[in-house]
Amino acid sequence: MSTAGTTTDLTMRAVPGPIRADYLVVSRLIAPGSKVLDVGCGDGGLLKLLRDEKGVDGRGIELSREGVNRCVAEGLAVIQGDADTDLAFYPDDAFDVVILSQTIQATRAPRVVLEHMLRIGKQAVVSFPNFGHWRLRLQLVTRGRMPTSENLPYHWYDTPNIHFCTIRDFVDLVREVEAVIDHSTALDAWGREVRVNAPWWFWNFFGEQAVFKLRGKR
């Protein structure tokens, strides 16, 4: 899945440096030894982190051939596939956690994808860029153009990100699919967590990305 997240990751592979902030947040939400499916796993950075730090039994789905082949060559159980079409083939409760990291905005049917995740996994972890961040709002208001940023470098005509949402939009979707939020975090532009007890509007304004841990009502 070629997303903004994957692009960030490409540069980070070239220069071994800090691990992506949202990876660390996601990793904290995963219990050691869990069986995990990472949907849109890119070059497997998160799966490797989870394998090495948490001893998880990790699987991945990735759209780009290059990403998949790199993952498989590193011994990760990753398949070439598409979140929109391939999640349907997994049985209910096949995983402890299904992760969708910086990918939901690139899916054709985010709601269907989310519902599949809640069906396949006992829990779902979703991280996404927040389109309600003040800088993006400012760009639209002042320049009157579709916003771009370091994390969202694409133009409107070449972006793979076709379904942007804000944190509040996502929370609405969670209610729509009748899922329960077990945990949520917003990260600012520097990857720091936004004040924990702040109201949604505050997160929606200052969070550059968000990480949610959900479970379906059973």
Binding site: D57, R59, R65, V68, N69, C71, V72, L76, A77, V78, I79, Q80, G81
Partner: peptide, 8 residues
């Protein structure tokens, strides 16, 4: 546990 790669 399955990996799947399509090679160009």
């Amino acid at each position: 546990s399955v990996s799947f790669a399509e090679i160009t």
